[in-house]
Computed example of a mutant assay.
Amino acid sequence: MDSDFLPRIGITTGDINGIGPEVILKALEKQKITKLCTPIIYGSGKHLSKYKSELGFHDWQFFTINNTKQANRKKFNLVNCYEGPNFELTLGEVKKEAGQLAFQALKRATEDLKSGYIEALVTAPISKDNTQGEEFNFPGHTEFLAHAFGVEDVLMFLVSEDLRLGVVTGHIPLEQVKKQINKKSISKKLDLMKTSLINDFGIQKPKIAVLGLNPHAGENGMLGKEEEEIIEPVVNEYRSKGNLFFGPFPTDGFFATQQWKQYDAVLAMYHDQGLTPFKMLAFDSGVNYTAGLTGVRTSPDHGTAFDLAGKNEANPGSMMQAIFAAIDIYKNRRLNEELTSNAISPVEIKKIIKANKEKN
Rank of each mutant, 00 (worst) to 15 (best):
D4F: 15
R8I: 15
I11A: 03
I16Y: 00
G20N: 04
P21I: 09
E22D: 11
Q31K: 14
T38D: 03
I40S: 08
I41Y: 00
G45H: 04
L48C: 00
K50Q: 14
K52F: 04
E54G: 01
G56T: 06
F57W: 12
F63M: 08
I65Q: 08
I65G: 06
N66Y: 07
K69G: 14
V79W: 06
E83F: 02
G92V: 01
G99C: 00
F103S: 02
L106M: 14
R108E: 11
E111C: 05
S115P: 01
I118W: 00
I118N: 05
T123I: 01
K128D: 03
D129I: 12
G133L: 01
F136A: 04
F149I: 00
V151W: 01
V159Y: 04
S160T: 04
G170W: 06
K178L: 12
N182W: 11
K183E: 15
I186T: 09
S187F: 02
K188W: 00
K189Q: 15
L190H: 02
D191I: 07
K194G: 05
F201P: 03
G202H: 07
I203Q: 04
K205D: 14
P206D: 03
A209V: 03
G212Q: 07
N214P: 05
H216E: 08
A217W: 10
N220A: 12
G224E: 06
E227H: 06
E228I: 11
P233V: 08
V234M: 07
V235W: 02
R239F: 12
S240W: 02
S240C: 07
K241N: 14
N243F: 15
L244M: 11
G247E: 11
G247Y: 03
F254L: 08
Q258Y: 08
W260G: 05
Y263D: 08
A265D: 08
V266A: 03
L267F: 13
A268S: 14
M269R: 07
Y270P: 00
G274T: 13
L275W: 13
D284A: 14
V287G: 07
G292F: 06
P300N: 09
P300T: 10
P300S: 12
T304V: 10
T304C: 08
F306E: 04
G310T: 03
G310C: 04
E313M: 13
N315L: 05
G317V: 09
A325L: 09
A325F: 00
Y330F: 12
K331E: 05
N332C: 00
R334K: 14
N342T: 09
I344C: 13
I349H: 12
I353L: 15
I353P: 01
K354Q: 15
N356I: 14
N360W: 05
N360Y: 09
